[in-house]
Simulated scan of single mutants.
Amino acid sequence: MQQRVAASPSAPQQESAEDLPEPLPEPAPEEMRLEVVMAALSDPLRLEIVRRLLLESEAFDHTCGWFGFDRPKSSLTHHFRALREAGLIRQRQYGLERRSQVRVHDLNARFPGLLDLVAASPSQDL
């Protein structure tokens, strides 16, 4: 599974690992459970979040506002937390913002083929 990264002069520079804030709490790869991951993906909004992060993201530069969902911030916070606690995404805190990225390497190692299915799923009109 390869992420598409848009190359544009205005794209933010990739930060080196030592410059990144620590990730928020998440399960270790060996602690991820298929039924928890599948439960998190069973919600259409969460499935669309992961799909868009896989196909359209650039590093950790996407906050919940980037998706353009017409939902209260508290609702989006709940959905992002469910994805993080299931092990699907990694989030880092940048000041008041949380930025997300799919844990591609960990998920491909633990559940081969799962992210290919997510990426191939039809876009949801939410």
Rank of each mutant, 00 (worst) to 15 (best):
M1E: 06
M1S: 08
Q2C: 03
R4P: 00
V5H: 03
A7N: 10
A7Q: 09
P9N: 09
P9V: 12
S10G: 04
S10I: 15
A11S: 15
P12Y: 04
P12F: 10
Q13H: 08
S16I: 10
S16C: 07
A17Q: 11
E18I: 11
E18A: 12
E18K: 08
D19P: 00
E22Y: 07
L24N: 08
L24S: 05
L24I: 06
L24D: 15
P27L: 12
P27H: 03
A28M: 14
A28D: 15
E30K: 09
E31W: 02
M32Y: 00
M32A: 01
M32P: 00
L34G: 00
L34N: 01
L34M: 12
E35K: 05
V37H: 00
A39C: 02
A39M: 04
A39N: 01
L41V: 06
L41P: 03
L41I: 10
L41E: 01
D43L: 10
P44A: 01
P44T: 04
R46I: 08
I49F: 02
V50C: 05
V50M: 04
V50L: 05
R51K: 07
L53H: 07
L53F: 10
L53R: 11
L54C: 05
L55P: 01
L55A: 05
E58N: 11
C64K: 13
C64Q: 13
W66Y: 10
G68A: 05
F69E: 11
F69R: 13
F69C: 05
R71F: 10
R71N: 07
P72N: 11
K73F: 04
K73G: 10
S74Q: 14
H78L: 14
H79V: 04
H79S: 13
R84G: 03
A86W: 12
G87Q: 03
R90L: 09
Q91H: 08
R92I: 14
Y94P: 01
G95M: 04
L96K: 12
S100N: 11
Q101F: 05
H105S: 08
D106I: 09
L107D: 04
L107A: 04
L107G: 07
A109I: 05
F111T: 07
P112R: 09
P112Q: 12
D116N: 11
D116K: 12
A119T: 07
A119K: 10
S121T: 12
P122I: 06
P122S: 13
S123E: 13
S123I: 09
L126N: 04
